[in-house]
Design a protein around this nucleic acid. Structure first.
Length: 977
RNA sequence: GCCCCGGUGGUGGAAUUGGUAGACACGCAGGACUUAAAAUCCUGUGACCCGCAACGGUCGUAACGGUUCAACUCCGUUCCGGGGCACCA
């Protein structure tokens, strides 16, 4: 009986599916466990071997927990809305709905091949109206909500209105402190004033408080994509997708007021089990810093400059000030003499694209001619502008302390600004003293004080003088929440006279209308603006209105999908509160780090808002996050000669065959190795002679070789399958190959796995060749899940061999060999050692070492010729999460009638691992010297005596006196002499 | 520039708390079976040295230094690779 994995796997996948073996109920006496994968975006190129890495890991854990007696929720779905889907549709001339459907089907098939235990009856698709009805609904809750800073809660907007009606907004200032009440110069209003405002003004004011709000702001506009991008969708100033230039543009945009949650998002990190790297990435993104805002009056002028600094203690070291070139005060304070220079500089900064400003690092700036007055010394401080100060951060102005800040120091040196040393010997005159451990000098009342003391003291002084205050600052901005796109959720919003009105909840979903052409609308609006019939509506009680034509961004649907899995078919609510109370937080969330500051922050914010509004009962969505590494592709290259030919008259270039040289020759060519170049040229000229026998005038003019990606699937290791290559690229079917050792050797490089680099490996091929169980175990065997590594199919044979070996523990040529005999102690030792190891390794997500442990176990049972049912059954259960198909098959072949999926995880029994005597490793001065067999019942004194009397030990001690005798963890001893 | 992670045989990687470095697998070499091949199985496999033997010695976890009876593991400095953030005050 051979291990026929194809038949076995097909059979069990079918059976499990038919029996609904993975269906999970919302009611169970068992404890719950929620294992979630980041759902994939179904791209046109299908799944590659990198995608399932995390899914295999989570599937193993989910199956393991099931064996451990948990009611496990392990769902899967598709993140089907968003820019990529729209672009794919545009490129392929197919409607997004159609191509998305097709891609999902491909993904589904590929996923099914691998034998995951997903409960597909709970599948969600963000582009399904039944799903996005609730995305829209949640949006409305956020629109109807405001963030109450007094109690740090998201509340319904009605509570804000009643506050306004009784006391105005004096206790709840507008979040944007520079916002002025329309037709006034005030930022506050009384209850009487509120009551007197007309509806439009009231709505404008309320908009300033809403959690989901609309505002005008500078956004990242991408002309080529015709849409706005979020900060985290831009890489180095160009769009992440497509690599198009991005410029600043003022547009009406929806935002989520995520900044109000900054502190809670930060504090929440302490309650969740994320990796330190992930936590750090998020807290860096939130970017909380504390310091002071200080006001500097401008000499001989009515203006003042507000700066934000994290080092107010260094205030006596201020030698100059710097404003962002875009700072609003620049024009007002610049002196007549400096006007020309400043204007020239501002023009220069404007002429530089965002890209250039980011890429370059040279020091530039110009003096405004103005002076600020130091709040304590009353000294005059020159005010400069420079592009290294950004208008968007802090106040857009700084007090520069060159002796304490590296960039300020370089700036001062560059422009010969004298530097005040406030750190005494701590500052060496050549580079800034950035350490916080230094004591202040030349700092008046702060002299001799440390960073901490001085900061306290100076802020108190500033506050007393009324020229500064303690200030906490965040780097994070509110999240842009609208896109000028088609393929996303429409907003349940209509506009009338510049006021946004929410559509009633019972009209949801606002379905995305069908659109044939996806070209952007007029005035930088999305494609929906073209659909005038849909856009213009008449609303009961409101009259004629215009629909919001933006759609929601990709992260809208993914910010709450983990809740929908709990109760996916509910038409009454997004997720029944009792049910979400049962499943509660996601116990294990598996996915890549690339979502660190996008999706993960947004879903954490949504969860907090929903929690505040009383809709769910927990405020952190993910208890434990496991980051899987990326599987990179290992690209292969061939090296083609470009024919540059000397000829006296025309010839048919089409007849020229492709000419490829093996890697060795290419290396020689790169290194300018004369011998290699001569031999390549000789070879190439021979090809010319063969191809054009009657043309002796043809000759190679210059050697020019370039590398070409070649499909990794036709390369065995590094050796190219020449025939397959010629089949793959028919234009090279008559190509010539310059071989080394009779082989064509390819070059290699580790790159991101992508279709364009033809280095993708389709899991279907691996599964077909070795089976899903082998594939699953091999993906784990590759290394720790968290680590990125290049895909390499080479070692897969070893894992496959392991499964065949396992099969032969049950079967030989004649049939089933399993017996009901009692297992020997030796055999039980092997079993229990394995139980312990598998349990420990699975619990700590060390799946690679677990796979190794299985291999050791089978090798040992094989050596013992173990055929005992008692042992083998338990091994199968252990193996189920890792290789479910073969386990289930053998389980049934042992005569079981119930599924192994419902077995329970074996209990480890210590007694089988207890030994009566053991080899004590003995080290002398920490160096391993020998092993001595000692009865475990021996006391420490007896062990010491035996060891010291040992011949070998005595030889090594060479008669030196014993200094110390150390027992190490009860398993070895160290003799110190 | 700053922050984080990492660097272990020919290769992927083990070593969970400072306690026998190199588990497991690939590759390679040799052998068994076979007419042959595939498949399978067995043996060897960090480097160097000594020797008839070995259950002998020395070195060895990027480099250097430190702490310790004992360091892949902790500390310091440097180099290299990967990722993140970026004139963020």
């Amino acid at each position: 009986m051979e291990y026929n994995f194809r038949e076995i796997e097909r059979k069990w996948q079918q059976k499990w599916n038919d029996q609904g073996a993975y269906k999970v109920s919302n009611q169970s006496a068992k404890p719950k466990f929620y294992v979630l994968d980041m759902f994939p975006y179904p791209s046109g190129s299908g799944l590659h071997v990198g995608h399932p890495l995390g899914y295999v890991a989570s599937d193993i854990y989910a199956r393991y927990k099931r064996l451990k007696g948990f009611n496990v929720l392990h769902p899967m779905g598709f993140d089907a809305f968003g820019l990529p889907a729209e672009q794919y549709a545009i490129e392929h001339g197919v409607h997004p709905a159609v191509s998305t459907e097709k891609n999902i089907e491909t993904y589904r098939k590929q996923l099914d091949n691998i034998g995951f235990s997903f409960d597909w009856s709970r599948e969600v698709r963000t582009s399904d109206p039944k799903y996005y009805k609730w995305t829209q609904w949640i949006f409305l809750q956020l629109f109807h909500a405001w963030y109450n800073r007094k109690n740090n809660r998201t509340e319904h907007i009605s509570t804000l209105i009643s506050i306004f009606e009784t006391e105005g907004n004096k206790n709840h200032p507008i979040p944007d402190s520079s916002f002025l009440i329309p037709n006034t110069t005030s930022t506050t209003f009384s209850s009487e004033e509120w009551k007197a405002f007309d509806n439009q003004i009231k709505q404008t004011i309320l908009m300033e408080y809403r959690v989901a709000y609309c505002g005008y702001g500078e956004v990242n506009w991408c002309e080529a994509l015709g849409t706005v991008l979020a900060n985290d969708e831009i890489v180095n100033g160009i769009s992440e997708r497509g690599g198009y230039p991005v410029v600043k543009k003022k547009l009406r945009q929806w935002y989520l007021r995520i900044t109000e949650y900054a502190d809670r998002l930060l504090q929440g990190l302490q309650t969740v089990d994320f990796s330190d790297a992930m936590k750090e990435m998020q807290s860096n993104w939130i970017g909380k810093s504390s310091g002071a805002e200080i006001t500097f009056p401008v000499h001989n002028s009515p203006f003042t400059i507000d700066v934000y600094t994290t080092r107010p203690d260094t205030i006596f070291g201020v030698d100059f000030m710097v404003l962002a070139p875009e700072h609003e005060l620049v024009e007002s304070i610049t002196t007549t003499e400096q006007k020309a220079a400043v204007e020239e500089y501002i023009a220069y900064v404007k002429s530089r694209s965002e890209r250039e400003r980011m890429a370059e690092k040279k020091i530039s700036g110009v003096f405004t001619g103005a002076y600020a007055i130091h709040p304590f010394t009353k000294k005059q401080i020159p005010v400069w502008i420079s592009e290294y100060i950004l208008a968007g951060y802090g106040t857009g102005a700084i007090m520069a302390v060159p002796s304490g800040d590296e960039r300020d120091h370089k700036f001062a040196n560059h422009f010969n600004i004298p530097i005040t040393n406030i750190f005494g010997e701590g500052y060496n005159g050549t580079e800034a003293a950035t350490s916080k451990d230094l004591v202040l000098h030349q700092s008046d009342f702060l002299n001799g004080k440390s960073y901490k003391e001085a900061t306290e003291e100076v802020i108190n002084q500033l506050e007393q003088l009324g020229v500064g205050k303690r200030k906490v600052n965040y780097k994070m901005r509110d999240a842009a929440f609208s896109r000028q796109r088609y393929w996303g959720e429409p907003f349940p919003i209509v506009w009338q006279a510049d006021v946004a009105y929410a559509l009633p909840e019972d009209e949801l979903p606002i379905e995305l209308p069908h659109l044939d052409s996806l070209k952007p609308g007029p005035d930088a609006e999305g494609p929906l603006a073209n659909l005038t019939d849909w856009v213009n509506v008449t609303i009961d009680g409101l009259g004629e209105a215009r629909r919001e034509v933006n759609t929601m961004p990709g992260y809208a649907g993914s910010s709450w999908y983990f809740l929908r899995y709990m109760d996916p078919h509910n038409d009454e609510t997004f997720c029944d509160k009792e049910i979400s109370k049962y499943w509660n937080q996601v116990d294990l969330y598996v996915g890549g780090t690339e979502h660190a500051v996008g999706h993960l922050l947004y879903s954490r914010m949504w969860t907090k808002a929903l929690y505040d509004l009383g809709l769910i009962s927990f405020d952190e969505p993910f208890k434990k996050l496991l980051n899987q590494g990326m599987i990179q592709g290992s690209s292969r290259f061939v090296y083609r000669i470009y024919w540059s030919i000397i000829s006296s008259e025309d010839f048919d270039r089409n007849k020229l065959p492709g000419a490829f040289v093996s890697k060795n020759f290419y290396d020689g060519y790169l290194n300018n190795d004369d011998k290699t170049i001569v031999s390549i040229k000789y070879w190439a000229n021979n090809i010319l002679k063969e191809t054009f026998p009657d043309r002796s005038d043809l000759g190679l003019f210059d050697l020019n070789i370039s590398e070409l990606h070649v499909d990794v699937n036709i390369v065995d290791g590094f050796e190219l399958d020449v025939n397959a290559f010629q089949k793959w690229k028919p234009e090279y079917s008559n190509s010539k190959f310059l071989l080394e050792n009779n082989k064509y050797i390819c070059g290699a490089q580790v790159e991101k796995m992508s279709k364009s680099k033809v280095n993708t490996v389709n899991p279907d091929n691996i599964v077909d060749k070795y089976g899903a169980d082998t594939f699953r175990m091999y993906e784990m065997f590759l290394g720790p899940v968290e680590m990125s590594k290049p895909w390499d199919t080479k070692g897969i044979e070893g894992v496959h061999r392991f499964l065949k070996k396992l099969w032969r523990l049950f079967y030989n040529e004649t049939g089933l060999t399993v017996t009901d005999e009692k297992a020997t102690t030796e055999e039980l030792k092997v079993l229990h050692r394995t139980i312990k190891k598998i349990e420990e390794d699975t619990e700590r997500f060390s799946f690679n070492t677990a796979v190794s442990a299985f291999m050791v176990c089978v090798n040992e049972l094989n050596d013992l010729k173990c055929t005992k049912r008692e042992v083998l059954e338990q091994v199968l259960i252990l193996l189920t999460p890792y290789a479910p198909h073969i386990s289930e098959e053998l389980w049934h072949r042992l005569g079981k009638t119930t599924s192994i999926l419902d077995a329970s995880f074996p209990t480890f029994e210590e007694k089988y691992l207890v030994e009566s005597s053991k080899e004590y490793p003995v080290s002398i001065n920490g160096k391993m010297r020998t092993q001595i067999n000692i009865d475990l019942a021996a006391t420490q004194e007896q062990v010491q005596e035996i060891v010291l009397n040992n011949e070998i030990v005595q030889k090594w001690m060479e008669g030196k006196p014993l200094k110390k005798f150390i027992f190490v963890k009860g398993k070895m001893v160290n003799v110190v002499v």
